[in-house]
C-alpha cells in the first residue's frame, strides 16, 4: 500500500507528519477554546435568565 518514496522517504514523510501535526494542534486549540467559551457563556446566560 505504501508508495515507494525512494531515497527521499524521510523528507516526504516528515513533511507530512509535521504539517498534519501543526494543523491538528491549531484545530485542537480552536475547538477546545470554542467549547470552553461556549460552556462559560451558556452558564452565564443561564444565571442571568433565571
Amino acid at each position: 500500500m505504501m508508495p515507494d518514496l525512494g531515497k527521499y522517504a524521510l523528507e516526504v514523510n516528515s513533511s507530512y507528519v509535521l504539517s498534519l501535526l501543526a494543523l491538528g494542534v491549531i484545530v485542537g486549540l480552536y475547538a477546545k477554546r470554542s467549547r470552553a467559551v461556549k460552556r462559560d457563556l451558556a452558564a452565564m446566560e443561564a444565571v442571568h435568565d433565571a
Binding site: 508508495p3 515507494d4 518514496l5 525512494g6 522517504a9 516526504v12 513533511s15 507530512y16 504539517s19
Partner: peptide, 11 residues
Amino acid sequence: QGSTVKIIYLH
C-alpha cells in the same frame, strides 16, 4: 526532484 515533489501538496 524524485518523491520530494510530493511536498508541494503541503508547501
